[in-house]
Write a protein that binds this DNA or RNA. Sequence first.
DNA 1: AAATGTAATTGAACAGTGTTTAAAAATAAA
DNA 2: TTTATTTTTAAACACTGTTCAATTACATTT
Lengths: 207, 207
Amino acid sequence: MGVAERKEREKEVLREQILTAAKTLFLEKGVEKTSIRNIADLIEYSPGSIYHYFKDKDEIFYALHQGGFQQLMTKMLVINDLPHPMERLKAMGSIYVQFGLDNPDMYDLMFIKEAPLDHVARTKALQWNEGEATFKFLRSTLRECMEQGYFQGHEEETLSFLIWSTVHGMVSLQIRRRCEVVLADRQDTIVKDGLNEFFNILDRQFS
Amino acid sequence: MGVAERKEREKEVLREQILTAAKTLFLEKGVEKTSIRNIADLIEYSPGSIYHYFKDKDEIFYALHQGGFQQLMTKMLVINDLPHPMERLKAMGSIYVQFGLDNPDMYDLMFIKEAPLDHVARTKALQWNEGEATFKFLRSTLRECMEQGYFQGHEEETLSFLIWSTVHGMVSLQIRRRCEVVLADRQDTIVKDGLNEFFNILDRQFS
DNA sequence: AAATGTAATTGAACAGTGTTTAAAAATAAA
DNA sequence: TTTATTTTTAAACACTGTTCAATTACATTT
C-alpha cells in the first residue's frame, strides 16, 4: 500500500530537519565548529542516527552548499531584465560580490572550504554541477559581450576564469580577513571600490 | 654568569626544533591534520612541553606563515633587475602566482587559512606586518607605473587591491580545487593562461 | 491477536583533537 | 648540600567524527 511512500516521506522530513539544524548552527558558528553532536542535540536525536541519513559530515555540508548555489542563482536571474550584455556582466559581478559579503559563511562553504569538494571527489562524480552551472552562466554572458565587440582578441573561457577570479579574490580576501589588517581604514568600502575600478577597466575593453 | 644567555639559546634551539617539525608535518598534511601530538612525537617530547614554547597551535602556524612571507619576499627581490616598472609589476604577478602553485599549503596558510589571522587578532597587534609589507611593495611598484602614464584616472590603493585580488583569486580557486571540476581539461594551464590574459589587459591601460 | 521480519534509534565505545595542571625531574644559585 | 627556579611529563578534561551491537518501533504475515 502507500505505507512505503509514507515512510519515504517521513525519512525525507527528518533529512530536512537535519539540514535545517545544520544550517542554523553553521550560519552562527561556521562548519568546523558545528559538530554532529550539536546537530543531534538540536533535533533531539542521538548522534548516531544522523548517519542513517547522511554518509558523513561532508555530505551534510555538501547539501547545504547546494542550497547556497540555488540562492545565488535565484539572485542572478534578475540580470535578465537588463538589455545590454555588458550591463548584465557587471550586474553579475555586483550580485556575486554582494552575495559573498552578505553571506560570508555560505560563500566560504561554496568557494573556499574543502569539505564540499572532498565530497564531490569521493562520490567520484568527477563534476561539481553547482559550480559548473554558475560558470556557464558567466561564460554565456561574456560571449554575448564579445559578440557586441567587447574583449576582442581574448579567449572566452580564459577570460571568464579571470573575471571569476577577480571577484572571488576580492570577496575571499575580505572574508578571510586579509583586508581588515592591510586596509583597516577602508574595510567596509574597499571591495565595492575595487569592483568599481574593475568595471571601469571592463568598460574600456571595447573594440 | 653567561648561564642565562646559554639557557636562552637552548630555549631558542628547541623553539626552532618545534617549528621545523611543525613545518615538515604541515607541508605533507596541511594545518588541520598536523596535531600538537604529531609535532611532539617527532621531536620526542611530550605534548604538554610544546606549550612552554608557544601559547597555542595558532602561534606555531603564525610563526610558519611568517617564514612563508620571507620566502615570497626573497623571490620578489629579483624584480629589481627589471628596468621598466610595468615589467616589474607583471613579474611580481608571475612570482606571486608561481609561489602559490609551487607551495600550495604555505600559500593556503598565508592568504586563506584563518589560523594566522586569529593569532594576529588575539595578540591585539591590530596589524598583520607580513601582509602589509607585501602589499606596500605592490603599491610602490604600481605607483611607479602610474608615474609613467599607466592607469590614469585610477586610485593607487584601490587598484593595488584589485590586482592583488585577481592573482589571489586565480591561485585560491586552483588551490581549493574549484578549477579541477569546472575546467577539468585545462587544469594545469588555466592559471597561467589567465595570468597572461590579465597581463594583456594591464598593458592596454596606458594613457 | 500473536509471531515474525525489517527499519530506525540508541548508547557506548574507539581513536583522535587542543589545552590545562599538578607533580616530578633537571638544573642553577646560595 | 640545600634552596630556588626552570623544564618536562603524565594524566585529565572536554571535545571531535565515526562505527556498531543491542534495543526499540513498526509493518507484514501467520
